[in-house]
């Protein structure tokens, strides 16, 4: 039992309060997904026009980057669970830095993609779709930036419990993107 004394939350890895945050964030994203599906059903042609303006390959590249960052975070958790030593701390930190570097790369690619979509060609008349697109990807990017701050804290003090807690949040960011990418770019 990783967290004795926390009732139903005691069986989850990392700090139980992080799981309260993760579950609430998943609920918020699920609600947005539902509203998106409803609006798309009511205006499929307008949404299709907006989706055709996006670059699915750039979105896919970002998915590959974020999932690789998730792997680095998971490997950091494994390293942090090894018997304490200077080598173990160094390996944990290295993996957390890799996860951070890939998270930053995700943000850079996203900014480049926004630039391509909104400043280099005329934007199709699909206001509702682009409101969702900016809102959902922007909200997700805010989570990525918050996750990067958490990863920096874990790299600074790589205690196994801290690393597990931060990695749990980072994987939630992964999980949401894995479903957000097809919703916005691919399901047409």
């Amino acid at each position: 039992m990783p967290n004795p004394g926390w009732g139903p939350l005691s069986g989850l890895p990392g700090n139980p309060l992080m799981w309260v945050l993760i579950l609430s964030e998943l609920l918020v994203f699920a609600a947005f997904f539902g509203v998106f599906a409803w609006h798309r059903a009511n205006a499929p042609q307008s949404f299709l026009l907006g989706q055709q303006h996006l670059a699915p390959l750039i979105g896919g590249l970002n998915t590959l980057v974020l999932l690789t960052s998730g792997l680095a975070a998971a490997l950091a958790v494994d390293a942090s669970r090894q018997p304490p030593s200077a080598r173990q701390r160094r390996r944990t930190r290295q993996r957390l830095w890799i996860a951070m570097a890939l998270g930053i790369l995700f943000c850079v690619i996203k900014a480049f993609e926004y630039h391509l979509e909104f400043f280099t060609s005329p934007i199709p008349n699909s206001v509702t779709f682009f409101t969702f697109y900016i809102g959902l990807t922007g909200f997700h990017a805010a989570h990525v930036i918050f996750g990067l701050c958490l990863l920096a804290i874990a790299a600074w003090r790589p205690h196994p419990h801290t690393v597990e807690t931060v990695a749990a949040f980072w994987h939630m960011v992964d999980l949401v993107w894995v479903l957000l990418y097809p919703l916005l770019y691919l399901v047409r």
């Binding site: 579950l23 998943l26 699920a30 997904f33 998106f36 599906a37 059903a41 499929p44 479903l179």
Partner: peptide
């Protein structure tokens, strides 16, 4: 189940417009 609900929304985004059409 929570992820399943999100997946259901994903499927609905793709399938609902086709069914309505």
């Amino acid at each position: 189940i929570m992820v399943g609900v999100m997946g259901l929304c994903l499927a609905a985004a793709g399938l609902l417009p086709r069914w309505l059409a």
